[in-house]
Design a protein around this nucleic acid. Structure first.
Length: 643
RNA sequence: GCUGGUGUAGCACAGUCGGUAGUGCAGCUGAUUCGUAAUCAGCAGGUCGUCCGUUCAAGUCGGAUCACCAGCUCCA
């Protein structure tokens, strides 16, 4: 048989293991932990008996890492069963930076138990147990798992599709149902760490029993583990929820309530800067600004569909079920309010596209466990907008929305951290959605075509659509790796009809427009959070809440410093003079801790010469220059939104 | 909403076996007028998240509740 190993041809007379084949090709060393036969990831013990291609996999390959960490999750399961035999096993996959295993444990797993488990895992690694695969028929497999009293595994066996092998992996006296593949032995997992323990629902469904999930990570060497843990710590130092409070961008107050942050002057200033920029940019692109009410009567939300689809998420003022009394609700979305602008008078095809923008404050009664800093809150302000368009304008207008969003993200410096998701409905979950399958198919087909034409590299999210249509979601991760939607552009072919939004077309017919729901840079609070994390609190000059601080060395230079600062302020620069009687080193240190873009040191030399000494926020000395030269440089930086 | 953790001065943290509250930084006052990571002295600041209970006595023990953190689930 002929085997192509890393693009070279080899021929073998008899079947052999992948390990032997790779040895023959001189491609085996300690770093090889698994292999890929054709497109399937396999253990090195896999037997090769026919023509195929073969590639070695190391920890550097994503697939190799998965095999490695999946093995670590089995070591975890084995350790837990040794220490707490009454625990039931469920599943334990490798994930992006590690692995987890879900257990059904009669007692919650405490942090003390976690360190015991970790020690036991290290023992298992030291024992260097051979990992062996075997397969069983469905009945034998079930019998084995029933004997071992593993009810979840019995359930999982039933899920294995007909015709697929039911495989088990054995290491020492531990046996687990698993599709594999795995490492050769437990000894290779030289460095591991259990990171946390939390609850997680069986099958990811909140209606099911909550299990105990143990997270961990593993590496081939202790140095790599250490570097990874340090990197995690470093990421946490950028956490907006910590940094944003320390640097006084926002705070929370117990008695105000959950998910209702107070924006302090610095946070408010950044948001105002962003908001002015967004509103101006939208105006340039033909948007009309609206300002609509923050609440409406129950009946209004019944027309929009929110009452049926979103009541739990709304703050209701009054008894929602007493029809004899007036009842209001704070708005969770802007859509139906902004539609009233279109409905204000009879519309013609000449009015379209009608691009409406609004800096819109919304209220959503999120479940109590969902709130997170400025990323997930109960009241937020979004750069909202709706484009009411003729069907044939869809592609061009969608492109316009996408380009605006892209421009915003590029300017903010966030574009490289974003991923795109084409969010579709779930045909098996029709209760959640409005409209017919035909309407959904049409909207999704249109959107798919537009996304492909725009050459957007996207993933598909099933059951992630809005109740009225498919979305392009622009996703971003926070410092903990948790993903959220920053920007969304949605196609809606349904709501216009609900609201009776007609226009007279050129042929005299009354027609329903399409609507694009979109945001240009998302919610200001969330965007601010991600900016703080992206820049570790050192925001680019143009959006920094304080752009320049003047630091006179002594009283004698205070007047000169104020004179220049006044000049800067008159030009719209955000600056302060620190003329406290403190040592200059002390003032610099404070300004640096506050992550200000520029510090201007002013001594007698500067006052005499009409110059300033400029320092960057990193402490770099940018030299002495005429005051006017610095002002011109700074103003240019602000105007050009330099990062 | 669920699982686990945390809550002592603006911030970072001590507080032993239940015996009546401490340190550093920040703040204020005074002195110091100084060229790049901390000048000196003094002062002030706390219903120990909140409520209920146990006790002669609770920051400390028990319960409830609120807020914050991580995860699950849900969502911009």
């Amino acid at each position: 048989m002929n085997v192509t190993i890393s693009n070279k041809e080899f021929s073998f007379d008899a079947p052999l293991s992948a390990y032997d084949a790779l040895s023959e090709a001189g491609l085996i060393d300690r770093s090889v932990i698994a292999c890929k036969i054709d497109s399937k990831v396999c253990a090195l013990t896999e037997e090769i008996s026919c023509d195929c291609t073969l590639l070695p996999l190391t920890f550097a390959d994503e697939e190799g890492r998965k095999v490695f960490r999946h093995t670590a999750s089995h070591i975890l399961a084995q350790a837990v069963k040794r220490l707490y035999p009454e625990t039931k096993l469920t599943i334990g996959p490798a994930i992006e930076n590690g692995f987890y295993y879900d257990f059904d444990s009669p007692v919650p797993i405490s942090s003390e138990m976690l360190s015991n488990i970790e020690s036991e895992m290290k023992k298992i690694v030291k024992e260097n147990l051979r990992i062996e695969r075997f397969t069983l028929s469905r009945d034998e497999a079930k019998k084995l798992m029933e004997e071992k009293d593993e009810p979840y595994k019995v359930l999982l066996i039933d899920r294995v599709p007909e015709g697929e092998e039911i495989s088990f992996y054995k290491q020492g006296d531990f046996v687990d149902l698993c599709a594999g593949p795995h490492l050769f032995s437990t000894g290779a997992v030289k460095a591991l760490k259990l990171t946390q323990c939390t609850g997680a629902y069986w099958e990811g469904d909140a209606k099911n029993k909550q299990l105990q999930r143990v997270y961990g990570t593993a590496f081939p060497t202790k140095d790599e583990l250490k570097a990874h843990l340090e990197q995690l710590e470093e990421a946490k130092r950028r956490d907006h929820n910590k940094l944003g409070r320390e640097l006084e961008y926002f705070t929370t107050v117990d008695v105000i309530g959950q998910g209702l942050p107070v924006l302090l002057p610095k946070g408010a200033k950044v948001i105002q800067t962003l908001q002015r920029w967004v509103e101006d940019e939208e105006e340039k692109r033909g948007y009309l600004l609206t300002k609509t009410p923050l609440m409406a009567k129950r009946e209004f939300y019944k027309i929009s569909g929110h009452w049926d689809h979103y009541l739990d998420g709304m703050f209701v003022l009054g008894d929602p079920y007493d029809e004899t009394k007036e009842c209001f609700a704070l708005r969770p979305m802007t859509c139906p309010f902004q539609y009233q602008v279109f409905l204000n008078r009879k519309r013609s095809y000449r009015d379209l596209p009608m691009r409406l923008g609004e800096t819109s404050t919304l209220f959503r009664n999120e479940d109590s466990g969902e709130m997170h800093g400025l990323i997930r809150v109960r009241q937020f302000t979004i750069s909202e907008g709706h484009l009411i368009i003729r069907p044939e304008q869809l592609e061009e207008e969608f492109r316009g929305c996408f380009e605006l969003a892209k421009y915003m993200l590029e300017t903010l410096g966030l574009i490289d951290d974003c991923t795109f998701r084409f969010s579709q409905w779930d045909p098996n979950n029709t209760a959640k959605y409005e409209g017919t399958a035909e309407q959904w198919d049409e909207a999704q087909a249109l959107m798919g075509k537009i996304l492909d034409d725009l050459k957007i590299d996207y993933t598909i999210g099933i059951d992630e659509a809005a109740f009225y249509g498919p979305k392009l979601d622009i996703q971003i991760k926070n410092v903990y790796g948790k993903e959220d939607t920053l920007i969304t552009i949605q196609i809606d072919m349904l709501l216009a009809k609900r609201f009776g939004m007609e226009y007279t077309d050129s042929d005299g017919q009354q027609k329903y427009p399409y609507i694009l729901h979109r945001t240009s840079m998302g919610c200001y609070e969330r965007t601010l959070a991600l900016l703080i994390e992206k820049y570790a609190g050192a925001l680019p000059m143009w959006m920094a809440p304080e752009q320049v601080r003047f630091l006179p060395i002594g009283d004698a230079q205070s007047e000169y410093a104020h004179k220049i600062a006044d000049k800067c302020r008159a030009l719209g620069m955000r600056c302060k003079v620190d003329d406290r009687n403190e040592k200059i080193g002390y003032k610099i240190r404070e300004a640096q801790l506050e992550k200000l873009p520029y510090m201007i040191i002013i001594g007698q030399n500067e006052a005499d010469a009409g110059t300033v000494s400029v320092r960057s926020r990193k402490g770099e000395d940018l030299g002495q220059m005429p005051a006017d030269e610095f002002i011109a440089k700074a103003m240019k930086e602000i105007a050009e939104k330099v990062k």
